[in-house]
Design a protein around this nucleic acid. Sequence first.
DNA 1: ACCTGAACACCGTTCAAGT
DNA 2: ACCTGAACACCGTTCAAGT
Lengths: 215, 215
Amino acid sequence: MPLSRERIVTAAIDMIERHGVEAVSMRRIAAELSCGVMSLYNHVPSKAALLDDVAERVMSGIEFTAAPGAGWEDQVRAQARAFRAIARRYPRCTMVVVSRPTNSVTGLRPIENALATLREAGFGGGDAVLIMRAFVGFILGSLLREVGVSPALGDAHPSYSAQAPQRLHLDPEEFPQVTSLTAELTRRDPDADFEFGLDLLVHAIAAMVPATPAS
Amino acid sequence: MPLSRERIVTAAIDMIERHGVEAVSMRRIAAELSCGVMSLYNHVPSKAALLDDVAERVMSGIEFTAAPGAGWEDQVRAQARAFRAIARRYPRCTMVVVSRPTNSVTGLRPIENALATLREAGFGGGDAVLIMRAFVGFILGSLLREVGVSPALGDAHPSYSAQAPQRLHLDPEEFPQVTSLTAELTRRDPDADFEFGLDLLVHAIAAMVPATPAS
DNA sequence: ACCTGAACACCGTTCAAGT
DNA sequence: ACCTGAACACCGTTCAAGT
């Protein structure tokens, strides 16, 4: 099997999911593909570019399965869930996607879809962009939280995070809420969290939907 | 001036803001502090721990300036803005904060505050946690977008991002919305974006506030 | 207790040499 | 056109030696 950009990117993705981004090196990838390190550079200009390709590939896996006749609320929900679905499939690659600027056309596809849905719902261009940005913010942050790293109590996906048992002792005087709500805070139900936030945003947007939908 | 953990963390933060995280190395920090590399290890166990300290220090800079008599809406807004303020002060460190799990007590402070505000507004524990998480998601994602990296058209803070001129050509047939809304999409007004999303969430939450506030 | 240089096992990437 | 080993300028960290 000849070396190719595709094969290298695939190897990188596998390695990220298996051992984490920090474990990825050009030398390890070469070893995985049984070739010399420098052979990689015939297909990929640099490690940074390779990681860009990883992000690109992962993003391109987004699949929208919106019912054609559905209202804009369901469409928006479906788009948000599609975005999130890739994070569940490639949890560790998601960190790469999220922490790296995407100037590629692939990254614009979801944005185009969201804007189209919102405009069809009757929103003006300016509002559509603002609403889309609020959604992107929420989705991005939720994935970040979910994928394991966040300024929150809960920790990552159980299979990855080893720090679960580590319970830092808290002064109930200083943290009355956090201590009294331990049960709710340690419960892990990312689906519920995501859907709740999605509901909040959709309801808020529904409240500002124009009276006369366009088209 | 003797070496100390504080001085090392400060040097690391300065270096991150000036040259980016990827430029930070123990050897560079040692050079900056005019000491041998290994001297650092008398005060900091590892580079990873140092970056944890960086995140901790940055987070601890959050200052809440909520008017004591203000309603919960204003309190929540103030907390979100306080969080965001540090991202504007330490844009590049924010990536470190956001992409690294915080199991420290410092990271729980904002959560405690948010929960207290929401409970005082009359929400039950479970709802308060869900609402708080939605807010954290939105804030995290917004900071990520703002700090420069995101699946969006706009790019980072102008002083950092050099890729601004790079305009990727888009097919108007394939991306009608993105091409027709170029003006709105390239406009950079992070304040407006953030406030808009904040409004959405606050309104949605106000719509579900219980009839009888607690206490 | 704090500092430090040498050394080890790694990096990404350039370059020149091969086919 | 693609592959590759050697070499360069880096890494983080261990260890043993200094004060």
